[in-house]
């Protein structure tokens, strides 16, 4: 995983609550066995007017001009601004892959669904929870469509606007560290392989049926 560095990005305001992972990436694209290539189908049902299927040339489909991702003012955006309970529903990590494949590097919302939140960190996508009031004010700014950008500084745990506003966010120290360093969780865990084996030996004595083979 790439280390997460400080960046400034254009903000895309997606003004809906409870955006679910079915909406982020519809089920027909989950048949892929790869981790990449989901970007063109991010928010597929909202973004295009015609139904999409895997394998189509998505560049030739009819786009929905009213959907925020299609508006000229938000092209190249790297920060998605959302409402409460962002990423609810299915556990599909494809939702995060679609966001990152599209070029989103951070999502700001008042709250996130647990599994989505967790999946984000595994893919270098930073979910930032700010208060309802802060998110509201960001929507007011971003809705103007005049190139509103934010600087995301994970190290300092700050979101900064060009006009001097600073929003502080909380993040679990371990997650922050892994993201900043671009660490592979599995390698980290395997450093504790002896602890895992010791646990297994203890547990097998207590509850041998958990170790049965079938």
């Amino acid at each position: 995983m790439q280390p997460f560095s400080k960046f400034t990005g254009l903000v895309i305001p997606l003004d809906r609550a409870n955006v679910d992972t079915d909406a982020i990436i519809p089920k027909q694209y989950l048949k892929s066995i790869k981790r990449t290539g989901f970007g063109p189908n991010l928010f597929d049902d909202w973004r295009y007017l015609d139904p999409g299927e895997p394998g189509m040339d998505h560049g030739k489909r009819r786009i929905n001009p009213d959907f925020v991702l299609n508006k000229p003012a938000y092209q190249g955006g790297e920060i998605l601004l959302g409402r409460e309970n962002f990423g609810c529903g299915s556990s599909r990590e494809h939702a995060v892959w679609a966001l990152t494949d599209y070029g989103i590097r951070a999502v700001i919302a008042p709250s996130f669904a647990d599994i989505f939140y967790n999946n984000s960190f595994k893919n270098g996508l930073l979910p930032i929870a700010l208060s309802e009031a802060e998110v509201d004010s960001l929507f007011t700014r971003a809705n103007k469509g005049d190139g509103f950008s934010l600087e995301i500084d994970l190290e300092a745990q700050q979101v900064r606007s060009g006009d001097g506003d600073v929003y502080r966010f909380e993040i679990d120290p371990f997650r922050k560290y892994c993201l900043l360093e671009g660490l592979d969780d599995i390698a980290l865990t395997l450093q504790h392989a002896d602890d895992i084996r010791a646990y297994e030996a203890r547990r097998q004595a207590e509850a041998p049926w958990l170790f049965a083979t079938h």
Partner: peptide, 20 residues
Amino acid sequence: HGIGTSEVEHVLATQCLLQK
């Protein structure tokens, strides 16, 4: 509970999850 695909890989490789 449900997990994402990176965690599926993590459990396959280590039998554990990183959790709070």
